[in-house]
């Protein structure tokens, strides 16, 4: 009788140790996981109309590169990200603005006047003047921005996130 009582006590003590240990572990582990992954779950949507200057600055038909920057807070630092767009003025207030980011792995594409293509230097991706993929690995055509023209000034709708 005494023996089995002794055994019960020992089992009880062991399970209390296990339960309390698990509680402590859980109280550290669960916030810990949240702590580690929370920056990856947070994205700040960003949206703005970016002025690209008077439309007349852009020559008809030729894609022209325009660079602009956006400031973002990443953790404890302000990051100034640089973006490039190719503006194609079709004349008569018709304009197409392509992102210069390759749809494959986000390298920056260059307009090649002699080949009449946007060429990506990383994996030899090629896009036609209308942004369609004509060669290489890119899965999608170049991204096109929504545009508006107010008082002759061209703006694009920049959306991120």
């Amino acid at each position: 009788m005494a023996k089995s009582h002794e055994l019960h006590r020992s089992d009880f003590v062991k399970s209390v140790v296990a339960v309390l240990g698990t509680i402590i572990g859980g109280f550290i582990a669960i916030p810990g996981i949240g702590y580690l992954i929370s920056p990856s779950l947070k994205f700040e949507a960003s949206e703005a109309w970016i002025p690209l200057g008077p439309l007349e600055n852009y020559p008809d038909g030729t894609p022209t590169l325009f660079n602009f920057t956006r400031t973002k807070i990443n953790g404890w630092e302000k990051t100034v990200n640089s973006y490039g767009v190719y503006v194609v003025n079709h004349g008569g207030n018709q304009v197409t603005v392509f992102s210069n980011m390759c749809t494959h792995l986000s390298c920056r594409v260059n307009w090649q006047e002699d080949g009449q293509i946007y060429h990506c230097p990383c994996h030899d991706g090629k896009f036609s003047p209308t942004g369609e993929v004509t060669g290489g690995p890119p899965p999608k055509p170049l991204n096109v921005y929504e545009t508006k023209i107010e008082d002759g000034v061209l703006s694009i709708h920049f959306v991120e996130g």
Binding site: P31, G32, G34, Y35, I37, S38, P39, G75, W76, E77
Partner: peptide
């Protein structure tokens, strides 16, 4: 340059940073 700001980030920018 960043010690203070990075701790502010731990306290306000990260889940449970204040608890840890």
């Amino acid at each position: 340059d960043h010690a203070y700001d990075s701790i502010q980030f731990i306290m306000n920018g990260v889940a449970f940073g204040w608890l840890i």
